[in-house]
Design a binder for these strands. Structure first.
Lengths: 143, 143
DNA sequence: GATGAAACAGCCGAGCT
DNA sequence: AGCTCGGCTGTTTCATC
């Protein structure tokens, strides 16, 4: 992990479809050298995957929300498979504080969101925060 | 936006470096046809970009946290440029509920996180939730 | 949207430092 | 050992139907 690897990660973070050749001239190396570095980063698990940034609104997902869930620890074995199976769940984190879980979801409308929260309440108390706007839209970690 | 577009989006969401040719045989279309569809999705803004999924831990970012911030509306003009300029901020959302902002950050250690929260407190009261684990790791929206 | 040709990028070898 | 340079294969793109 030297400065060149960092540059390659930054380039791929900006545009993961970026051709190897254009990266190679950015870092003043040959294409095979860059190719080998990227394969190494993939093997090491530093690069976990190449993904897509889509506009949820244009796909009919108008509601983005965070749901806090307070749950007793022995509910967890039932909860985890359930939450992982819901496609609208974007993230689910165990967190410190008054609530045990913080869940990020996206739904077409508040109606579907409400129905999901109804299902969640069998596991514990919930508190929902609906997103109005995102001054800093989701982005990658600092490299 | 027909079923074929959805398949292409799903393929790119799994692996955005996926070659056009392999997608074209998945949807039983020619390469130029797939290429044209993807260009259209980019122009329409449905595809916002191609990005990278990296492992924060392997890059030394051990602490992931959500910070709730309670702020009076007239602080906002000062707050937005500040928050956007902090590279460790992964997301910043205006939300409903007791707190006005929900901020996601990643830091090497709790020390740097604490220092950031110190800066935040000039804008209002904060409440921090540190992430222990992610039963559902961040993923794209359902397509 | 499909086909065929041309340009281009990515991959694998050999030779070099 | 790792990098660079070569040729070869496969992919993307453009013009045409």
């Amino acid at each position: 992990m030297d400065e060149i690897d960092h540059k390659l990660l930054r380039a791929l973070q900006r545009n993961s479809r970026c051709p190897i050749k254009s990266m190679s001239q950015e870092v003043s190396l040959s294409s095979p050298a860059v190719s080998a570095r990227i394969e190494r980063l993939e093997r090491q698990g530093i690069i976990r995957g190449y993904t897509l940034d889509v506009d949820p609104l244009q796909l009919g997902h108008h509601i983005l929300a965070y749901i806090n869930l307070d749950m007793t620890p022995n509910e967890k074995p039932k909860f985890i498979p359930f939450i992982a199976s819901v496609p609208n769940v974007i993230e689910c984190n165990c967190v410190t504080g008054a609530y045990s879980m913080l869940i990020k979801v996206s739904y077409p409308s508040t109606q579907e969101l409400d129905s999901f929260i109804g299902q969640l309440q069998q596991f514990g108390k919930t508190e929902t925060q609906i997103v109005f706007s995102s001054p800093v839209p989701p982005r990658g970690i600092a490299l």
